[in-house]
Amino acid sequence: MDGVIGFFEQLGPNLQILGERMPLIVEGIWVTAQATALGGLLALAISIVFGVAQVAKYSVVRIIARIFVEFFRGTSLVVQLFWLAFVLPQLPYPFGWQLAPLAIGVLALGLNYGAYGAEVVRGSIGSVPKGQYEAISALSLSPVRGMFRIIIPQAWALMIPSLSNLWIQLLKGSAIVSTVLLYDLYFRIEQVRDQTGTWFAFLFALLAYYLIAWVIVILMNALEVRAKHKIGRGPALSKSWGTLFRSPGSVITEGSLFRAPISGGGKA
């Protein structure tokens, strides 16, 4: 593979080219960061609303939430992206909206991963021990207050690892947005490729994505440590900086391996 040899021979000049092109690349990173952050926030909002709605008392609410979730999980991110970019503008009045590329990216990423997140939220609400629901009932607390004051704070600690992995998936998924003319990190790297060669450009791109993913991992690890500490499981963040760099590893976002680590009332 001469590509690999070329990679090392050309390392010096390539770094120089990279330096010259840096302003554009930084712009691309900024676009990727925006799509990931805004898409992630939208996805989080959708996850919570539709996750809670799926355990609502009224079956109409549950069914609507279920249809929403199945629809956006089932139709594939790329289709949703293309639909917003190509179909929506062609629809007659009062639709026919030509959205800005960033809005298209954020919407598609948020809707798609939000639908997955809703399943995570629903699952972790279901994983809060049954005794907690019984205590709410025995104290005659209203179901709504019980849900928001007692169940969700506990479920939050359970759902963070899965949400963290979904957010990384969202970041990875965001690399497709250049197909709808959003000039993200991947797009800018493609532009540099002619001058630096494939190996250099793409290893740089992968490394950049990898580092952004780690920013998400560290952020979410911190949130998880804090949430666990709040429900009395695990030390305060100030005493456990090491856990921030724990690899996201093996959280299974869907499927039966998603089980509650918390059991019963537990002894101290």
């Binding site: 907690q132 019984e134 009932s137 025995a138 005659s140 007692i150 709040k230």
Partner: peptide, 16 residues
Amino acid sequence: TTQIGMVFQHFNLFPN
């Protein structure tokens, strides 16, 4: 049930 209190085998205190 407001007049009725219950103590459980596994305590069921709210950990948060």
